[in-house]
């Protein structure tokens, strides 16, 4: 026999309890049928025609691209220097670092990242990256396969993401000076 609620408050209370019960049941069902897969959190963004990403743990801040002072005679990938939390950081062109030729739009954002050696630097980017995940197993497999600083990883929906290993990227580069003119 179904109990009919007597007042509006009682009706709402009943509705809320039923909703919570349904959610609990759904969660119990998930727990029984699927083992949650380990994931790797990334910050994903477009670069040219492709999708690139950085490990979210390397990201320290996203800043508007302004107050960058150009450094004449520096290497081509150096956009300039800026001040971040009392430190002087180099702003670098990610497209140039990766051997690319440009962005679809002018970058408006700087991503402050840990280079992997404890030092920070800023990388330019078209837009604020989107936090998302990749299956850890896919990342590990790509890491084994890749020799360079960029790993190709497929998402669960078969989208290709180029995951950048900053430690490898900066280890492979020399210093930032050009010959003085």
């Amino acid at each position: 026999m179904k109990v009919t609620p007597r007042t509006m408050e009682e009706a709402q209370e009943t509705e809320a309890r039923e909703l919570l019960e349904r959610r609990a049941a759904r969660l119990r069902e998930q727990g029984e049928t699927a083992v949650e897969e380990a994931v790797h959190w990334i910050a994903e963004f477009p670069l040219g025609e492709e999708r690139y990403a950085l490990s979210l743990e390397t990201l320290r801040a996203a800043l508007p691209l302004k107050m960058v002072s150009p450094v004449p005679l520096s290497a081509p990938h150096v956009v300039g220097v800026l001040r971040f939390q009392g430190q002087v950081l180099a702003a670098l062109s990610l497209a140039s670092l990766l051997g690319g030729h440009g962005w679809r739009q002018d970058p408006a954002v700087l991503l402050v990242v840990d280079r992997g050696d404890g030092e920070l630097c800023a990388l330019d980017c078209e837009a604020i990256p989107r936090p998302t995940t990749l299956p850890m197993s896919a990342v590990e497999a790509a890491r084994v396969r890749a020799e360079g600083p960029v790993m190709e990883v497929f998402t669960q929906d078969r989208q290709l993401i180029h995951l950048i290993d900053l430690k490898r990227l900066f280890a492979s580069r020399g210093t930032g000076g050009r010959n003085a003119r």
Binding site: S74, V78, V81, A90, G176, G177, R178
Partner: peptide, 13 residues
């Protein structure tokens, strides 16, 4: 302040 490693070796600065 000192310059970051990416530009430290540029002899002009």
């Amino acid at each position: 302040r000192p310059l970051p490693s990416e530009v430290r070796d540029v002899p002009a600065w």
